[in-house]
């Protein structure tokens, strides 16, 4: 299980408190609350889910159920760079699966995983709705169209170049595509 780093616990508690303060405390608000907390933290830590369950008076088992049901929610911190490979029909037919495999090979992780150094995470998405530009890849929330296997190499080079400095050590979840805290 993921160990929280120093200060992370306080950060999580403060975040949940803030979000709960901004929403009326009803079961109906469970999804918006989870979305807002994830947007701030990058993922849904166990502690956050517990506190949300308490705050909205919902069984914790249901919060967990919901968080594991929907694709959007993640229970582990995302990598610094998030690559989503679209596998909609048009993308699949133009080689989206080959693109995904190329990323898996280059990142040395499988889909829906984060690399051990938290530099990358790789996901598949059902369809981002840019079918005329297939195959499509979303790199840190930027949509890239017509991604050939050679372009995968290019994207990897760009992401690798961002490895310098103390990244990965202290930043982790905060610098993903979801970051809103400057």
């Amino acid at each position: 299980m993921l160990q929280l780093k120093e200060g992370e616990k306080e950060e999580i508690l403060a975040c949940v408190k803030e979000v709960l303060g901004e929403n009326s405390k009803t079961h109906e608000n469970l999804i918006p609350v989870l979305q807002q907390v994830q947007k701030k933290l990058g993922y849904l830590p166990v502690l956050a889910m517990e506190k949300i369950a308490e705050g909205l008076d919902v069984p914790a088992a249901d919060v967990f159920g919901l968080a594991t049901f929907y694709n959007q929610f993640r229970l582990n911190p995302p990598g610094k760079h998030e690559v989503k490979v679209c596998l909609g029909t048009a993308c699949y037919m133009t080689g989206g699966d080959i693109t995904l495999e190329s990323f898996e090979r280059r990142m040395e992780i499988k889909e829906s995983e984060t690399s051990p150094d938290r530099h990358y995470s790789l996901e598949r998405v059902a369809c981002v709705g840019c079918c005329s530009l297939a195959p499509v890849v979303v790199v840190d929330d930027q949509v890239e169209g017509k991604v050939t296997p050679t372009r995968v190499d290019g994207i990897m080079l760009e992401l690798e170049a961002d490895r310098d400095g103390p990244a990965g050590e202290e930043s982790g979840p905060k610098e993903g595509g979801n970051s809103e805290q400057d």
Partner: peptide, 25 residues
């Protein structure tokens, strides 16, 4: 606006309503 959370099944009407009520879709 209610934002979905990424579940194809929520396009189904009763699942969509469940999801809006804070449940699994």
């Amino acid at each position: 606006v209610f934002q979905g959370s990424g579940a194809f099944i929520c396009g189904e009407a009763t699942a969509l309503v469940n999801s809006m009520e804070g449940k699994m879709g």
